[in-house]
Design a protein around this nucleic acid. Sequence first.
DNA 1: TCATGTACTACGTGAAACGATACAGCGAAC
DNA 2: GTTCGCTGTATCGTTTCACGTAGTACATGA
Lengths: 106, 106
Amino acid sequence: MARNKTEVAWADPALLILTSLAGGPKHGYAIIQDTEEQAGVTLGPGTLYGALARLEERGHIRALPGEDRRRPYELTASGSAVLAERLKAMRNLASEGLARLRTAQP
Amino acid sequence: MARNKTEVAWADPALLILTSLAGGPKHGYAIIQDTEEQAGVTLGPGTLYGALARLEERGHIRALPGEDRRRPYELTASGSAVLAERLKAMRNLASEGLARLRTAQP
DNA sequence: TCATGTACTACGTGAAACGATACAGCGAAC
DNA sequence: GTTCGCTGTATCGTTTCACGTAGTACATGA
């Protein structure tokens, strides 16, 4: 992968997409905007549609019958389950890490 | 990256390493064990030492004068700052995502 | 002495993040 | 009335890097 060139990544695109879809079905462009606001991460089109295709093929999201040009996606049960699991792990790691940082620097 | 082949990744190795080092200086092998216990993620040697080299070259960690075969690393100021920032973002995303999941499925 | 644990190094492969680019419809500006 | 910007999706090429495997080396203990 070619993650962020100079920084430390903290969440992969797939997780950001699933989190965005947890707020309800969205199409690609809406996901980009939602993720920008909510996480401050701007997904490029290549990243987004590549990740969407992989998530669909793995059964974590499902394409809805789209009006006009939009192709909305929604979470599947498997997607919700995976997301919940990952988010809990993230929260635990974040709490633990922040606690370590606090005690390490008085 | 070629993250986890079939799953959705929730943290990249670099973040796990920084979090581990937030508990104090450690050498490679100790980081592997710490990360296993704390996050349930087993880093292979290729993953670990590759990530360590990149983190050092970016100034987020620093190698300490090592006794015998061990090469301990410690967080730099920049590393702590980046880590704190990422962990806070992670915690926020996790809270937001879990809240969305809760309200979406009554 | 042979296996096991510790500790690091080297390398090849494949996945995929990312930017660039293209295309198309729409409304507003001018 | 065409130029501009926004919306919306899609593809391509490059580069990065996660991961597995294998190897080296030393120490310990059965």
